[in-house]
Simulated assay, not measured.
Amino acid sequence: MTNKKILSVGELLLRICPGGDWLQDNTLPFFVGGAEANVATALALWGRPSAYFTALPDNAMTHELALYLGDKGIDTSRILYQGDRIGIYYLPKGKDLKNAGVIYDRAHSSFSTLKPGSIDWDHVLHDIGWLHFSAISPALNRDAATVCMEMLKAASAKNITISLDLNYRAKLWQYGATPTEIMPALADHCDLIMGNLWAAEKMLGIPVDHSLVETDTKKDYLQHAWLTSEQIMENFPKVKYVANTFRFDNGEKGIRYYTTLYAGKSLYTSTEYLSEKILDKVGSGDCFMAGLIYGLSQNHGNQDTLEYATAAAYQKLFIPSDATDQRPEEIKKFITTYER
């Protein structure tokens, strides 16, 4: 890939973090987030030419948010200012976005009210070499799913590399369509698909073999990663890379974490990381995706790319925000010093 920019597209969100005595203390911490913004932030921090597209209401607060992203090195010139509100979600620090306790307040947000035919994709995709989006956007409503398809067709016509994170958010798929009715047509345009075995089943209809996963052994999970990856490539011929994450509880507050990358008929497996306690689960998968884009966009080797992405994602579990703040040299040092 040349010096063309990497564009992340999705809804900018504010994460409100109720917890402790927030009512009595009259304090409510928040973080700037959104899966795609987290990817854009990591790539900019790591020195890659990063751009971001979203829709925001045109007011003083959202322009401050754009300046905040710009100060991180992200090109925000493509942001569309329209609509009435920014999306919000409520989740205490340390909880997972798949947790039943997550509360979304995103209805009628500027991004969720985007309409087909309303975006100049030639402008948005100008000087872009890589486009990243996630399954969160088409989960919002049917118009958002149609807008995603418009975007992918425009990007494919320009031979832009496309990556997809199969983020599954059950609380968002509420408009009468199932993920398997929407996502396969979008996946047809993608070069890199990232997720896990269960997301591939929910989103793309690639079944989980319960005879393998019920054994709960790493050997069988890796075998399933191979099978799922091969099935994805068979169903979606444009796909060149399939990545899977495996994140399991390790004790009451800990994590066991490893990943795979399937490419060129080979399955690459990362170092396995263990911790007895973590700080914040939000954004770890986004950091992993950013690491994959970071390595693959620079033609790093598949194993090196996977190790970097996995270490970055694992380290994100100890950072109390939605996006990483670790630079490449810190991540690479961690890889070489981690005691296996």
Rank of each mutant, 00 (worst) to 15 (best):
E329F: 08
N3Q: 07
F248G: 01
S284H: 12
S266L: 08
L45G: 03
G70P: 03
V147N: 05
G291A: 03
K218V: 15
R340H: 14
A199I: 06
L227H: 13
T228W: 02
F318R: 05
I86S: 03
K219Q: 09
Y104P: 06
Y104F: 09
L69D: 02
E330K: 05
A135Q: 00
S156N: 00
N244H: 11
A187D: 04
T76F: 02
E150Q: 11
K98C: 06
L164E: 02
V9K: 09
E339R: 02
G291D: 02
L306M: 13
T161E: 00
G34R: 01
Y314K: 03
G205A: 08
G254F: 06
F30P: 00
L13I: 08
C190W: 06
E234Y: 01
R85K: 08
L23W: 04
A290Q: 00
Y168V: 08
G101W: 10
D120E: 14
A135C: 00
Y175R: 00
F133W: 08
N159C: 04
D75M: 00
L140T: 14
Q223G: 03
D71L: 09
T336Q: 10
F111R: 07
C17Q: 13
L80A: 11
R78V: 15
T2Q: 12
I331K: 04
Y90Q: 01
F53Y: 09
G101K: 08
Q298S: 11
N141G: 14
E36S: 05
C148S: 10
Y338F: 10
G285F: 05
G47D: 02
A35F: 05
Y258M: 08
G291I: 04
K281N: 07
D21Q: 04
T54Q: 09
F318I: 12
K93D: 01
I335T: 15
H210A: 05
N167Q: 03
I206D: 07
T217E: 00
L227G: 03
P49S: 02
I206F: 11
S321D: 13
I293W: 14
L296R: 09
I88W: 00
R106M: 06
F236N: 10
T178H: 06
I331E: 05
L222W: 09
T180W: 10
L140E: 07
Q298V: 13
G83Q: 11
Y241C: 08
M1A: 15
N250E: 12
Q223V: 15
I232C: 09
L296S: 05
L222Y: 13
Y104L: 01
W46F: 09
Y314C: 09
L227R: 10
W22K: 08
I162K: 13
E181Y: 11
M194I: 12
D165A: 04
E330T: 07
Y104H: 08
G83E: 04
A263S: 14
T76M: 14
I255C: 15
Y308V: 03
R256Y: 07
S118V: 07
P179A: 06
L65V: 11
C17L: 12
P179C: 06
P57N: 03
K218G: 15
T228Y: 03
N302H: 14
F246Q: 14
P29L: 08
A60E: 14
A200S: 12
G20D: 09
T259R: 02
G301S: 12
E150V: 07
L222N: 12
N26F: 05
M183T: 14
L317G: 04
A309K: 02
G176L: 15
G291P: 00
T269K: 06
T324M: 14
D143Q: 01
V213E: 15
V102G: 05
R48H: 10
L317S: 01
A309Q: 13
Y241E: 11
